[in-house]
Computed example of a mutant assay.
Amino acid sequence: MKKFLIGLGVVVLVLAGFVVKTLADAGQFKSLSPHFAGRCTPVSGMPGAEDITFHPTLGYAYISSDDRRATMAGHPVQGGIFRYDPASSAPPVLLTGAFSQPFHPHGIGLFVAPDGTQTLYVVNHAAPGDNRIERFEVGADGMLVHRKTVKDPALVSPNDVVPVDAERFYVTNDHHYPPGVMQVVEDYLQLAIGNVLYFDGKGFREVVNGTAYANGINHSADGRTVYLAQVLEKSLTVYTRDVDSGALTQRLKLPLGTGPDNIEVDARGDLWIGCHPKLLDFVAHAKDLSGATRAPAQVLRVKASGDKLEAEEVFLDDGRQISAVATAAVSGKWMLLGPVFDKDMLRCELP
């Protein structure tokens, strides 16, 4: 009996230690002090504006919108890609009204060719287990024209995509397992078994493995540096890209102390990252169909100077103004904050 009690005590201690570690790793013990030196106003009409990317010179943004609450409730609503100019009073414009296939967009990436031709790649969770990458071109009227669908068994759980030209792109698999019990196990045991894929115009190959919830991905203006956000590792990884082969070689890693989501790069080369400082709050927010359970929202600006990276917290909210920001996209004085689930995104004027 004594040995049994001792063994039971050891098991209890191990489990307690695991719970405390999980809470600490998720950021649940953090004390948050909301702040932002600028001002923000809500913009409606684009629920679940999970990813946003600005045209590099024209001042407007492309926004990936999907009502994930409706899908979770069993009544999926067709998602869309919108164009929005924060400097204008005009409302957002739906660009994918002519796209009739099932469309539930997630991450997006824009390539602008030297002649001005715009190619937009979109992660599309068309149906459970049916993950696709859609390629659109911007027509003369500004609407998106669908050009290609890429499907492959390697797209297990695609999250974000970044093109390097009109034909080639990188895409992150945030999990090794598809949605289900094993994916939950993967998360709570913090298993680093995700990856990054490279599509060379003909097929996929793995270029990074062993990632802990690979999420946002982007690259520098010259295309020679690739940035990767890993949520569970709470880090930003920087890779040197071989322009010819697409191979990625890790150069450095910056601990962020928070769960980074999407990465956007501004005209100066600075990185803007939407983050989830309390990951279990995000999980609770994601599961609540009513949206009443809120999660904090955070934005980091990472200044990159060669191999020197410096992170600064620009925005922090406790979830009252906006919950679970996935993306912070910046152009000039404007910052657009896109939430994973909220009905409204935020249009912010930087100080």
Rank of each mutant, 00 (worst) to 15 (best):
A267E: 12
L155C: 01
P56S: 13
S31E: 13
T225G: 11
F36A: 11
D85S: 10
R83A: 15
A127R: 09
A214Q: 05
L300K: 08
G79K: 09
A329R: 03
G246T: 00
P255Y: 09
L280E: 13
T237G: 01
D342S: 10
L316H: 02
A154N: 02
K2A: 12
F315D: 04
S305K: 13
E50A: 10
A16V: 12
N159A: 00
K333M: 04
L252T: 12
S235L: 04
M143Q: 14
V302D: 00
G116C: 04
D266T: 01
M143K: 13
A113W: 00
T211F: 09
K287Q: 15
T96S: 13
L15M: 14
H276W: 10
D200Q: 07
V20P: 10
F169S: 03
A127L: 11
V112G: 00
G9Q: 02
G139K: 02
F315Y: 14
I193D: 13
D152P: 00
T211G: 12
L248K: 05
Y170I: 07
A61M: 02
V162P: 04
Q250G: 09
A284Y: 09
G107L: 03
R132G: 12
G306L: 07
T119G: 04
V156E: 03
N124T: 14
A37H: 15
A26T: 11
E50I: 14
A326D: 15
Q298L: 14
S88K: 06
S44N: 13
A292M: 11
A154F: 05
H146C: 03
T96K: 00
A87N: 13
V138S: 11
T96Q: 06
T249R: 02
S331G: 07
V43E: 10
F54N: 01
P102H: 03
I6L: 11
S331W: 08
P351G: 14
V161K: 01
V77D: 00
T293W: 09
H219V: 01
V11A: 15
P114R: 02
G74R: 12
P339H: 03
D318C: 01
Y213K: 01
F36D: 05
H219F: 02
A192C: 10
P86W: 03
V10P: 15
G48F: 15
S157T: 03
L189T: 14
D174T: 09
K2L: 14
A329C: 07
Y213N: 08
R268H: 11
A126I: 10
P255N: 07
T96G: 14
A98C: 12
S157V: 02
V14F: 10
A229Q: 10
G9I: 00
Y121N: 05
V10A: 08
G180L: 04
S220R: 02
V265E: 01
S89V: 04
R301F: 00
A24R: 15
K287C: 08
N262H: 04
E310D: 09
D25L: 13
P158Q: 02
P179C: 07
R347V: 15
A326M: 12
P105Y: 01
P102T: 00
A154Y: 04
D281S: 15
A127W: 10
V184N: 12
G109H: 03
G129P: 01
S245W: 05
V43S: 07
H146K: 05
L23P: 09
I63Y: 05
K278P: 01
P179E: 04
T258Y: 11
A90R: 06
L144G: 12
